[in-house]
Structures are given as C-alpha cells and as structure tokens.
Computed example of a mutant assay.
Amino acid sequence: MHRSQTEFVDRHDAGQRLAGELLHLKEERPVVLALPRGGVPVAFEVAKALAAPLDLLMVRKLGAPGHPEYGIGAVVDGSEPQLVLNDEAMEIVRPSAEYIEAEMQRQLKEIERRRAQYFSDRAPIPLSGRTAIVVDDGIATGGTVRVALKAIGKANAARIVLAVPVAPRDTLESLHDEADEVVCLSVPDHFRAVGLHYDNFEQTSDAEVVACLNAAREWLSPEA
C-alpha cells in the first residue's frame, strides 16, 4: 500500500529507499544501469549502497523510412550495442536490411555523442556474466524499459533486476517476463504520472548526470 500521493522527497530520496530493498544483491557484485537522465540520481544512490559501478543505459529509437517518429525498433548502448526490432512494426513497414543497418549506425553515433558528453572517454561496462540492475525514476508505459531489458538479455547478463520507485500495476506485471527480479516500492491503484509521486521532480540536468557519474567512481575498487 502506498503512503500518499507524494511518496518521495526527490530522486535521491527514492534511490536511498530503493537501495534498502536491493542490499541482498551486494555480494553479487552487480552493475547498476541508469536510464538517463531522471534515472541517474536514483541509480546513484543504489550504486553507492551496493558499492557497485554505475553506468548509463541509453536507448535510441529506430524510425521508419520517411516517418522517423514511427519506431520500428531501438538500439541500446553497451560494450556490445544491441538491436531490438519491433516485429509488428517491421511487418507493416518492411524496411530493407540496408536501411536498418544505416539507421542503427546513425543512432549509435548519437549514443556515442551523448556518452562522450557524460563520460568523456570511458567505455561501457561489459555485462556478460554480471548481475545487471536497471534503474529509472519510475515507469509509465514501460516501452523504453522493455527494450532495455531485452537488450541486456542479448548482452548475456547472468541476472537482470529491474528496480524502480513507482510504476502502475499492469505495466509492472507486463515486464516480469523480461527480468529475473522486479523491485518496485510503490504500485498505486490509480496511477496517473510518475512525477506526482515526488515532492521535487525537476528535470535532471546534464551537469547533475556528470556529477553523479564522477562521484560514483570514488567507492569503486579496481576490480569492481
């Protein structure tokens, strides 16, 4: 049962409380993956509590030929970027393999630009054989998160955990098959928007993302 409409003071408060439900994973030496930008302050607190490395999980939509707003799939950042195609959209649009490759490379360039902005020259952390904890500040429809989870599965993570402060029940249930474990602090009976569950839900700035990522290096041992 949720306590009130505003369960969380801000994203850092939500992250600290979410971390308390994830301490059982500390001995697995997990990698914490934040969905930018709002998921970064939440994931920062989780990574800090678990003494785990913090990385970003950037997802870019692949648009249909001539209709870039219509998604036919997505590519997800990582040490080995993963392509996830929407079978229904692909059946309708039927793009060529050459188009898909070109569109994927275009979106990967944008991911690389954003990663350089946040990380300078640091490469993504390999997920193969690791426990991956995917963190966002909340879930509404779950589309982006679903693509991210599918991509992590392709990256051969040993275990996938989805952890969020708040989400609607139906969306959460639809994501259970994509993760080995799902942790959510609040599942409102009448969900309207993620921001309504925070006292402070101001947009996370690029500067805050960089500050969190830089600070996250402080608690890591060389082998983390």
Rank of each mutant, 00 (worst) to 15 (best):
A148P: 01
S79K: 09
L18I: 09
A64P: 02
S205C: 08
E7A: 03
L33N: 02
V84R: 08
R29P: 00
V84K: 09
E218P: 06
A193R: 14
P65L: 07
F119G: 08
D77A: 07
Q5S: 11
C212S: 12
L108G: 06
D13Q: 08
P41W: 11
G129V: 10
F201V: 03
K61M: 07
T131I: 12
A123H: 01
E69D: 09
R122F: 11
G20L: 04
L50M: 06
V42N: 00
A151M: 07
G39Y: 04
L162I: 06
T141F: 08
P124Q: 11
A116H: 14
A158F: 00
A49T: 11
F8S: 02
M90G: 00
L35E: 03
R159M: 05
Y198F: 13
L85G: 01
S120Y: 11
V187H: 01
V145M: 09
L25G: 05
N86A: 12
P188C: 05
D199G: 08
V194C: 04
R130F: 02
K109R: 15
N86G: 04
G20V: 05
G20I: 05
Q117A: 15
L18G: 02
V194I: 08
T204V: 09
R115E: 12
A158L: 14
Q117R: 14
E110L: 13
E28I: 11
Q107T: 09
F191S: 03
Q82R: 02
S174Q: 13
P124Y: 14
D136K: 10
E223Q: 14
T131W: 01
G138I: 12
H24Y: 09
M90Q: 07
R60V: 05
D136F: 10
H176Y: 14
A116Y: 13
D55P: 00
Y118Q: 12
A52F: 08
T131A: 11
V93Q: 12
P124H: 10
G15W: 10
S221F: 15
A123W: 12
V161H: 03
H197T: 00
D10C: 10
L57M: 03
L18K: 04
T6M: 14
I111S: 03
D87N: 08
V9H: 07
V183N: 02
V135C: 06
R217H: 13
H67S: 12
R29I: 04
G15Q: 07
H24M: 15
P168V: 06
M1I: 07
E202P: 06
D206L: 07
A179W: 02
A155K: 14
H197R: 00
M1N: 15
M1D: 02
A47L: 08
A47E: 11
V210T: 12
Y198C: 04
I160V: 07
D77C: 00
